[in-house]
Design a protein around this nucleic acid. Structure first.
Lengths: 336, 336
DNA sequence: TTGTACGCGTTATCAC
DNA sequence: GTGATAACGCGTACAA
């Protein structure tokens, strides 16, 4: 069942069929009716591949994420996919893992698949070593690349990020204001976003007059046990009364540490985590968490992308980097 | 840069180029070398759309899930996507929501996109009203449909499910064996999987001699507060000493209920949840959870699908329905 | 307004 | 083993 069959059934040319299918204006009502009738009758659907070959697009966007299992990224995928579909685009998903080689291979795969653009979700896509980002810059010569929570300066690469540093800085301020004096920041993996968080922490401590002796930074494994054990070790060395964590996952680990050690929250220990995901509400007491405003990050990314893909009339330019401010959502692990 | 350019550069016909690209055996080493050289030199990539038009496939599988935000489904997506990519297939994701109309529209969209098959992840795709599954049966005339944790009897539809009822039955047995006498089952939404869980519960109670008076079934909202409040209300009416929940999310709500009411776990109250996701490990105490063996469900689904898509030599047939047994992972909310 | 004819870049099927 | 060449199905100038 192809366009020729329809044209025959309707008694018109394939050009007319095509025009009707694509909503071109210059068709008489009569032919339109005939074509529509033939289409309905035969349940005809145009061949997507042939259409793509002609138009050069299948209206698909590649979405790269390290790991859809990560709650933060799972949310990003949801927001992105639904927003894109609303705009008539399909999403090809690639869970790339954290290995650079695999990230490269995935981007390459998406390029072979002729996607219209690629969205890279998560700060893990911008490598700390600049030359390791070359593959992104290279790919961006062929289609736009949208970064969520990561930024690199390059042609045809656009970024939408949350000002993580602002969030941690504010957290320090509020914790300090509620009486905390001895801080510890715990994170599990290094990234640009992580460095921003650290910068914010330092700034916050400076503002509050917290000396570097009272502000520790430690790294631990990702799982709850590692986090709890790391904190336990640190606490024994010198007690702290405020924990800031790089994610809700780490935050859950912090709660576990406190409960097992018998520290009362938030009287003896305050905890602020990051991302404000469902995990933050899963613990008792519930975690005060810095909301990185993921939905808005995703929506803006899609909006920018649409502007890039069909420039339309509104000749507004797309900003190379959009920055959003996080918001602290106070719950039960702080005395805010 | 197309296949003609390469053929010209290599001094061979496009047919030879095509053969080299697709690894056909009957090419002399010499031509192969020439073609390879030309490809390398020009960085040539075949046009995916043209290729699809000729071959009739872009090697893409549609993955439908209600909501990638759901941890269970997020995991499914990860397992499916990585397994498919390993087999040379791309994944088009569709987060359809729970509304039948949107599910239909999504399946239709995937069909328009000419995917090679569709995987429907989650028990929410099989409607309780049989005629509402007609759209699946209809679509299966055009490509195979793989159901994960849902089953319907139809041509070209294949299912891989976890025997949820076995899990709940075993849970009742173990709870009873550890001294529990007053049971309550709490769930948030109806589905075939849910009914299987219920059937298992009934069977378990019968075996253990637990009368229907000591086995309540209640429904609540999805969020923690609803779950906790529902349990609170029920507890006031008549106390129970064992809670079984339809998911880990509900399980977390149960833990919250117990902690806020000051019930000691597992002494005064045992809890068994379902899915064994990260949520089960996020609470204190950690949840004993029924592992629905999602990774294996996904792997088997992909394996079956591959058999269907390229039948190859091994003329083994693909089973219409594969059933896996869940496993109980004991943690801190039970006295197993 | 409508129809013809060609281009898109492959794959597959023939001859040789 | 290799090379022509016909599909593949649609979009779209261009002609009518």
């Amino acid at each position: 069942m192809n366009i020729y069959d329809i044209s025959r059934a309707a008694g018109v040319s394939i050009a007319s069929v095509s025009r009707v299918m694509n909503g071109a204006g210059n068709v008489s009502e009569k032919t339109k009716q005939k074509v529509m009738a033939a289409i309905e009758a035969t349940n005809y659907r145009p061949n997507a591949y042939a259409r793509a070959l002609g138009s050069g697009s299948m209206k698909t966007i590649g979405i790269m994420c390290s790991d859809s299992t990560d709650i933060y990224l799972a949310n990003a995928i949801y927001y992105l996919e639904t927003a894109l579909r609303k705009k008539g685009y399909h999403s090809i998903l690639c869970c790339t893992g954290y290995d650079l080689k695999n990230k490269k291979a995935s981007l390459d795969l998406l390029r072979s698949q002729q996607v219209d653009a690629v969205i890279m979700a998560g700060s893990k896509y911008v490598e700390l070593e600049p030359r390791n980002n070359q593959y992104i810059i290279e790919a961006a010569k062929h289609f736009p690349i949208m970064l969520i929570n990561g930024a690199i300066e390059a042609e045809n690469v656009y970024a939408t990020v949350c000002d993580d540093g602002y969030g941690t800085k504010e957290a320090v301020g509020k914790l300090c204001g509620s009486g905390c004096r001895e801080f510890i920041y715990i994170y599990s993996s290094d990234s640009l976003s992580g460095r921003n968080k650290l910068a914010g922490l330092s700034a916050g401590c400076r503002e509050c007059g917290i000396g570097s002796a009272s502000f520790r930074v430690v790294q631990s494994g990702k799982n709850y046990r590692d986090v709890a054990e790391t904190l336990e070790r640190e606490y024994r060395e010198r007690p702290f009364d405020a924990v800031i964590t790089s994610s809700d996952t780490t935050g859950v680990g912090a709660v576990k540490f406190a409960l097992r050690r018998g520290l009362s929250i938030p009287e003896e220990l305050s905890i602020v985590s990051f991302n404000n995901s469902i995990l933050a509400e899963s613990t008792v007491p519930e975690l005060t968490s810095i909301d990185s405003r993921l939905k808005e990050l995703c929506d803006r990314t899609v909006r920018s992308l649409m502007k890039l893909l069909d420039p339309g009339e509104g000749e507004s330019t797309v900003p190379k980097c959009t920055v959003l401010r996080p918001r602290i959502v106070a719950r039960e692990t702080t005395r805010f």
